[in-house]
Computed example of a mutant assay.
Amino acid sequence: MCRSIKTLFNFEPPATELEIRAASLQFVRKLSGFSVPSKANEAAFARAVEAVAAAASELLAELVTTAEPKNRDDEAAKARARSVARFSA
């Protein structure tokens, strides 16, 4: 899976439509193998992004958990710390 696709569920504040669309775009890019589709494939690519975004929005709206919502800033700090540990010499 693409490294740039982030977990969107159980955050406070909830994921925005922009974040969902960005993840959907990355997913369709990964599936298709195109970072930018040709003119011939542009319409199909755009429809796929919209369909994936709609499905992702529906999924996020229906998921339930008893866990406390995660804080975006805390999770970003943890990710930076993992990155430093992973890539430092």
Rank of each mutant, 00 (worst) to 15 (best):
M1N: 13
M1R: 10
M1K: 14
M1E: 15
K6D: 10
K6F: 09
T7K: 14
L8P: 05
F9Q: 08
F9P: 04
N10K: 07
E12S: 15
P13S: 14
P14I: 08
P14V: 11
A15F: 06
T16G: 04
E17L: 12
L18C: 09
E19M: 04
E19A: 07
I20S: 02
I20F: 05
R21E: 05
R21G: 01
A22L: 13
A22G: 11
A23L: 03
L25Q: 00
Q26I: 06
F27G: 00
F27W: 02
L31F: 02
G33I: 02
G33E: 01
F34I: 01
S35P: 01
S35Y: 11
V36T: 12
P37A: 02
P37K: 00
S38G: 04
K39M: 00
A40T: 08
A40Q: 04
N41E: 09
E42C: 04
E42L: 10
A44F: 02
A44E: 04
A44Y: 00
R47V: 02
R47C: 00
A48K: 04
E50A: 10
E50V: 04
E50L: 06
A51N: 12
A53W: 01
A54Y: 01
A54M: 06
A55Q: 03
A56L: 07
E58D: 09
L60F: 03
L60I: 07
E62L: 12
L63D: 08
L63Y: 11
V64E: 15
T65N: 14
T66H: 09
T66G: 12
E68W: 10
E68F: 10
P69F: 05
K70I: 03
N71K: 13
D74A: 15
D74Y: 09
E75D: 10
A76F: 06
A76R: 10
R80Q: 06
R80T: 02
R80E: 08
R80F: 06
A81S: 03
S83D: 09
S83K: 13
V84G: 03
V84A: 09
V84N: 14
A85R: 11
R86D: 06
F87G: 06
S88K: 14
A89M: 06
